[in-house]
Design a binder for these strands. Sequence first.
DNA 1: ACCGAATCTGACCGAATGGTCAAGATTCCC
DNA 2: GGGAATCTTGACCATTCGGTCAGATTCGGT
Lengths: 219, 219
Amino acid sequence: MDAGMGPPPVTGAARRDSTASILAAAERIFSRRGFEGARMADIAAEAGLPKANLHYYFGTKDRLYRAVLEDIIRQWLDTAAHWIVPERAPAEALAGYVRAKLADARIRPGASRIFAGEVLRGAPLLMPFLVDELRRRVAAMAAVIEGWAARGLMDGVAPAHLFFCIWAMTQTYADFDVQVRAVLGPEAGEDSVFAAAEATVTRLVLRGCGVRDSVTEMS
Amino acid sequence: MDAGMGPPPVTGAARRDSTASILAAAERIFSRRGFEGARMADIAAEAGLPKANLHYYFGTKDRLYRAVLEDIIRQWLDTAAHWIVPERAPAEALAGYVRAKLADARIRPGASRIFAGEVLRGAPLLMPFLVDELRRRVAAMAAVIEGWAARGLMDGVAPAHLFFCIWAMTQTYADFDVQVRAVLGPEAGEDSVFAAAEATVTRLVLRGCGVRDSVTEMS
DNA sequence: ACCGAATCTGACCGAATGGTCAAGATTCCC
DNA sequence: GGGAATCTTGACCATTCGGTCAGATTCGGT
């Protein structure tokens, strides 16, 4: 992440507003069209600014994309670090993590979609992050899981795969939202969809891991 | 699916070879670059044919993409129709379906990635399919699940969401293969990765659904 | 009020890309 | 064997798109 620097390295006032609205617009456009499909002109229009303005602040399309990604990664890691800690009980931690990830998927689906698109393409930009930071984080989280298993609080499952599954199930509600809506039909409201999603995912995770003291005995 | 027709509506001999290698090349290129990112010239090079040849057989990039997608959808539906049937026991059906989907993800990851990319973009081409065919299929599969639940063979879970979760978990091993490999490291071989994946996903699904007579009592 | 720095913007490129075409090569069928 | 349909291909084009730039315009400090 972070390569070189844009035009002026100083801080400004209007800078904040412009960059913020550009980033927001970029997240919206990139999330639906992907990096290649997104047009700088469209992002500019979405942000209500002339195209040259984007280049003034971010230099190139590539750097703008990186900036968006960086923001996404930060939140991604924060959520995990908040929930998957040894102090919590497995039931609370895993259910909380699932709930938080689903909330992200609902509130900020574009972020999840951009991340997905990046990894789909082979993670040309994120590869260093995946191999270094993410790998370390997962190792740490795996240790937490194994600690719980060792204390008899849950079954022994392959920790990394458990996380792959949790990420897949939760993020699918952002990445494949169109499919979810199409299948469930228009009569299914957002609230009920996400309520059912949380119940289902939580159930699969908690029961699948044999978590004792299952908070969600039924749903 | 299927819109209009290519240049000549007749059958040919060399036609088969060329179209086949073009489709294979297209699947490889589209799967990593997405529709917008894929270059007709690259697909041509991958297929070992001049670019004009692709246009001779498929007319436009759009029609070539549709042809690839159509093929993918067919397999997608076949697998589901094969496993999720009332005659089978839930344990066998669900485990078999998971195994088959994971095999697809391993053997033909490009197909899954193309499908994912299409849905990520809002399914501009697949929307009709999602709303009509897929919705009907899921309704049928949901009826099977509910039948099993009614017979006391498994718990009552929201069937559509169960499938969303199964698709997410299995396809993530194709779509996010790069992330999986990066996190698990190079020392993890294909075989062991997919073995662990199958064990984990199957466990989450079967235990999560409270399937009786669980074939996989432990792993 | 004044001045330099920061910000903004319309007009303008060059490269890349999907698509075309007409002429040449090959295959098929009688 | 011969002619027509099918197939192949290099050269070419129009458009689109990321990026540039020089000239306004506004902002911040004194």
